[in-house]
Design a protein around this nucleic acid. Structure first.
Lengths: 334, 334
DNA sequence: CTGAAAGCGCTTACAG
DNA sequence: CTGAAAGCGCTTACAG
């Protein structure tokens, strides 16, 4: 069954397709179409259930009312929750979101950008990885609104929204030190992205500022994408061979692996052994005892991303770039 | 900066756009274009970075290589993990996925279907809710491939893939009974969808088959979308006023709220008080003590959904419908 | 107050 | 072996 076209409506209403188009697009008044015609056409559209073909509209107008969202992995709860918030907020303004996961692959990220480009999305929201700077720069040069979030790409001159990873990490370590901890470990990943680097820098600086020597042996960099069993082995080794009294996990999935290890080796979180996880997760509050966390300001990140995108979308000229850094919240749970 | 069109390539190569189009679409051989021309055109495409406009292609061919995925809520880990698996598998076959969340709203679900329709997606994967039967039937009548998953819509004659909710629930209750439990509660939701009803029926039937009278007081139906605090109040009331020795949670988020209550009122899971959660979640294995769960076969669900969709997509004729029910796995954790 | 016509960038049946 | 032309379903500048 073929669907109706604007022509079918025009024939039924005995007017031109121009008239129908004006009515559909709310330009009837402006084009001074008579009330009678407006009524008649609207009624026919209503009754027939006609929906304009958005593909044709996009081809003609060059925009799509679609925003492309590129993230690392939709099954990661940080991203899926952000995606949901962005989706909601965009939807209310008449924009749809197409998302896709890069899985931390430069090739896939480039492909996704190309796919979005060839579908003429109106704007790009990207949680970028290293290696796609050029592709992003091309989008910007072509005049597309582009916003980076979660991770900044220092060389790229565009707007960015993200949490203050450095300070969050700094404060976490400082809170350990205030509790009297001396041997503070960091479990992080080896992905070379800014937010991970910042968490590392925050850790280092906090030690330094408090006169505790940095010890490379207490920092474990887990290879991205490796089997969880392997990760757990590495963390277990850290817990067993080093004399540590506190550990900061740089991502929530690492913290979960870490907690599994603690359970396995029957080591408890206690006054003698503190844990902070970067990025909250339902498992942490529920854990016995509860795990302290750094909460990322999801709502504010999504809010700011959408606000910037919509502002750029409704402006004829390129707006000034904004780098918005939002404080994260350290939640100490007893 | 305007992007290149097929015409630009044709001009550069000094051939017609027809020839360029044939080459792009791999029909060069079939149309017996000379090797020399193929080489020349390919080189120019390569060098210029030309990407065909998919919008124009869609308008012309009527298909988009896009599959629409409609789920309840992308921030729910069951859906985000399924989405990721489906995305991966579709991507390998050259299909992209557009997803959107219905948030259990009939209106939003209808709007999403309309949006997908007007974007001419090639196929629909839908985790449906009651009230959109007509809209789905229209899609099917129009000849679109449609697959339902997770929840079936009994009246609709199309393929379906989902877990065996009835048996999973039945077995959970039976395992309680084997442990000698008599007062088995069910915490479920009031959403009127098939998979929730089946979990309820499985619970009831297992009691009946084992000679335990069904007691309505032990079944709590939580209102969907209400504040978690309210949910926790209701669960707390159940735990405090009824003398129960086992509880089955019909969804993982309800189980998480339930565990929070247990923590608050300082009640422990033990030999005297067993818990099973429907749908695994990282928090459950980590919990002290670990929580038994029903694991949904995510990988198999995604695999079967994609297989059915691709088969339908590559077939000229409408294939016979298949209802694929996959057993869930009950994992008893000590 | 309304319409004929061009054009967005493709694909493809047809012609040579 | 290759190309001119129609057409997918819209929008919009222009004309009357």
């Amino acid at each position: 069954m073929k669907s109706l076209s604007i022509k079918d409506i025009a024939v039924k209403a005995n007017v031109s397709i121009t008239t129908v188009s004006f009515i559909i697009n709310g330009k009837a008044k402006e084009k001074s179409i008579s009330e009678a015609v407006i009524e008649k056409v609207k009624k026919i559209i209503e009754e027939s259930g006609y929906k304009p073909n958005q593909i044709a509209r996009s081809l003609r107008t060059g925009n799509s009312n679609i925003i492309g969202l590129i993230i690392e992995d939709i099954s990661n709860s940080f991203f899926s929750r952000i995606a949901r918030l962005i989706e909601d907020k965009a939807y209310k303004k008449g924009y749809k979101i197409i998302y896709s996961s890069t899985e931390n692959s430069v090739d896939k990220a480039k492909e996704l950008i190309n796919m979005f480009k060839s579908r003429k999305v109106d704007a790009y929201i990207i949680s970028p990885i290293k290696g796609i700077e050029e592709d992003i720069q091309m989008l910007i040069d072509d005049g597309n609104p582009v916003i980076l979030f979660d991770r900044n790409l220092p060389g790229i001159d565009t707007s960015y929204v993200g949490a203050d990873h450095f300070n969050a990490s700094y404060q976490s370590v400082e809170s350990f030190i205030k509790q009297g901890k001396k041997n503070i470990a960091l479990v992080t990943t080896d992905i070379d992205v800014q937010q991970i680097t910042e968490r590392y820098e925050g850790y280092k600086k906090a030690l330094e500022d408090n006169g505790i020597p940095y010890n490379d042996d207490l920092v474990v960099k887990i290879h991205f994408n490796q089997e969880e069993a392997e990760t757990m082995d590495e963390v277990e080794k850290l817990f067993k061979t080093k004399d540590i009294d506190a550990v900061l996990f740089a991502t929530n999935y690492l913290a979960i692996s870490g907690l599994k290890v603690l359970k396995q080796i029957n080591k408890k979180i206690s006054d003698e052994f503190s844990v902070i996880a970067y990025d909250d997760h339902e498992a942490f509050e529920l854990h016995t005892p509860s795990v302290s966390v750094v909460q990322q300001p999801l709502e504010e990140i999504a809010e700011n991303v959408i606000k910037l995108i919509l502002k750029q979308l409704s402006s004829k000229t390129k707006l000034e770039n904004q780098k918005i850094i939002i404080p994260a919240r350290l939640i100490i749970r007893e």
